[in-house]
Design a protein around this nucleic acid. Structure first.
Lengths: 206, 206
DNA sequence: ATGATTATTTTTGTATACAATTTTAAAAAT
DNA sequence: ATTTTTAAAATTGTATACAAAAATAATCAT
């Protein structure tokens, strides 16, 4: 986080605003005013402007507001995730090397034993490891983009971990370990479908 | 193209530069200098700057240069395309309505009968119609992003249409028309794989 | 009071300025 | 002639200024 040489005004602005958005510190309704951030950071509007454009392209901002993903957005994103992460799971079952497999196992363990924050991080990491093992830049980028938008949604939904989630991760891991591509893919898809259903269920009564 | 009220400087710059890139009018080596475009368009650097950032996020520009997709990039993009467009073809076989089916048929016809330019456009449109019929915003966006990068590649490769391409489109259309989701998906995947192979083959001896 | 109209303030889009950085060219040293 | 060093030029990142547009508040008419 803290680098020796001070980050550029643009980077500062980008990270500052992004953080605020992902932490849910900005209401979906409130307008993202350039000058407000500029003053808060002690920089000019120019770099703030660029940061906002970037966040807009990233899908976190639209029309100068924090994006509020709809149910339909969620469904769309999860359909794409199921296709891509399903394939990533398949690739993992075919090719993942032992050291990465060990890392994957580690995610499950620390998800089981850790505190709330650790559990959340490990669960996310479980997916990240599988996706990155695909070695497919575009796949990784695409999924990451959606992840942050989904995360946005999660924050608003007050995420308590879904029952069964860890067991599903374990099953996926086993399928990968046993070199069962079809099964790994199917389990990953089911897992994501269950996740989506959970999201939709919760978002209903809030 | 020509709107009544003059487009913003930013939009002008964005479209101008994007056009130049996609038409291959800018060498991959040459640096994209803000001031050059600013002067060419009679605007200041500010909007040009934003346009360049946008194009960068879009994947057409990196490090102030026009992106030159590598073979590995192509493979990665096509793998994602196969997954997503395969699914789109499946959805089309399940749900596409008669009027859209007619449009799809039209793409094939005008691809057969038209001149070079028309053929190229219709072939692209064939895919676009199927993808858009998915009604999945994120899927459409993701594919579009990759399409323009692939197009970039194609330009440099001097695209003459691949033998068999139209027949494959016809087969896909038939599978969709006959409501055969599995077949439609499989054919679409094969079609894209053949496309990729063709690209890689041509790019080899140039 | 409610809605329309006008005035005021805020915010944005773009231009311009300038120091810091990067690139390129020139000069010097090996 | 190639490499290193130094100087010059080009380019970028950021700040500031200001007119145009948008949002908000105030006034008036119904």
């Amino acid at each position: 986080m803290s680098t020796s040489k001070r980050a550029s005004a643009y980077t500062q602005a980008y990270e500052y605003i992004r953080e605020q958005i992902l932490n849910g510190e900005i209401e979906g309704k409130t307008k993202l005013v350039e000058d407000r951030f500029a003053k808060a950071l002690g920089v000019s509007r120019t770099p703030v402007r660029e940061a906002l454009r970037k966040l807009e392209e990233e899908g976190l901002v639209r029309d100068k507001r924090v994006v509020q993903p709809t149910e339909s957005d969620l469904r769309d994103m999860f359909r794409v995730r199921m296709l891509l992460e399903g394939d990533a799971a398949r690739l993992a079952a075919n090719y993942m090397d032992p050291s990465t497999l060990a890392i994957l196992k580690g995610c499950i363990d620390s998800s089981k034993n850790g505190n709330y924050e650790e559990t959340m991080t490990s669960n996310k990491q479980f997916h990240d490891v599988i996706v990155e093992a695909s070695n497919n830049t575009f796949m990784i980028e695409t999924i990451n983009r959606m992840q942050s938008i989904i995360y946005l949604f999660r924050k608003t939904v007050v995420y308590h971990n879904r029952p069964g989630l860890i067991e599903e991760h374990e099953d996926i891991y086993q399928a990968i370990l046993n070199r069962e591509p079809d099964r790994a893919e199917a389990l990953m898809k089911d897992h994501l479908q269950a996740d989506l259903d959970f999201f939709l269920h919760i978002s209903r009564n809030r």
